[in-house]
Design a protein around this nucleic acid. Structure first.
Lengths: 159, 159
DNA sequence: GAATTCTTACTCGGATAGGTCGTGTCCGAGTTGCTCCGG
DNA sequence: CCGGAGCAACTCGGACACGACCTATCCGAGTAAGAATTC
């Protein structure tokens, strides 16, 4: 089970957008992070569809966060990219084979599915505890000037 | 992020093997669960490599659990199939691009990676809390006779 | 009757094709900012 | 000097190939049980 690589880029973009009030084009974000511009655009579109950021068209357009960074959790970003479905999908094995349990006895999920679902909820709960603002704060704590430098670079004209 | 479908089969097999002291062939387990026999063999090989079950060759061979069901956690099974690597892999985006942070400033993982790693640990911790014996007990609690019926079926000669 | 040898059938194990989803890319629709022209 | 129209450039958005991993499969190596044979 491997998480999509786009999640990492999406999270970095959200943190970076904290440092800029003006819209930032996808190409600029891709250059800053050293990733493929066309592929990053795909992730940003997903974030836009999820309502986390808003796209502004036109000459000085780009992406802007729709809410305060304190209102966006890491889980929001992960689910925007990966979807909200559980990582485990039960195929109801107990209802198959020669000793299949009757369907009326399978109203509740089996213990295996319950365990996997509980672990999935624990994973999502941990991601829900952290907001983009927390991440920005931790980055600033590490290097107080890096976010302002990034904000200035995002606004500077591209050569 | 989707979990491999083989995990479900592997867990069911572990629970079922609790009801049989004698080795059970892979083909018999596949028939019981209504899944592809050759594909299930692949999962059982992985469990065997991980040391969770032991393979017995020869005429009345098959697979047997190597430890008590109370000593096998769901995490053991999941990691045997999916591997132990974290679901999130950090590509060190902060060290790329025009504003890359110097390498000596990146000894510790970035806040994003820390968050994802923490969620991964929470997921694994939840899976570690449940043992195969717990699953067997929950199944028996639901239908006390089903495990003994399965045990008898596993020993009965195949037509 | 007991030990031994042989056959036989059954088991696992790794190496081998196909399908699906993530990865990476491209070009078109739409909008905004700027420039030029006229009053 | 001011207003408006036109242009041009830049933006996002969805549709299109490529590749890797999961899924599914096959056949060969090895082993234990059982039967037949011999002493």
């Amino acid at each position: 089970m491997r998480l999509s690589g786009g999640v990492e880029s999406a999270l970095h973009c959200c943190v970076v957008l904290t440092a800029s009030a003006a819209p930032v084009p996808a190409a600029r974000l891709a250059e800053l992070h050293g990733v493929s511009a066309t592929y990053l655009a795909k992730q940003l579109q997903a974030l836009s569809r999820a309502g986390l950021m808003q796209s502004v068209q036109g000459k000085s357009g780009g992406y802007v966060l729709t809410r305060s960074a304190t209102e966006i959790t890491v889980l929001d970003v992960v689910e925007a990219i990966e979807g909200t479905r559980s990582t485990f999908i039960c195929t109801e094995i107990r209802q198959r084979g020669p000793l299949a349990r009757p369907q009326e006895a399978c109203a509740a999920p089996c213990p295996i599915a319950r365990t996997m679902y509980a672990a999935d909820r624990a994973w999502r709960a941990a991601l829900r505890e952290v907001t983009i603002a927390d991440l920005s704060g931790a980055v600033g704590e590490y290097d107080g000037g890096v976010l302002s430098r990034i904000g200035a670079w995002l606004l500077s004209p591209q050569p």
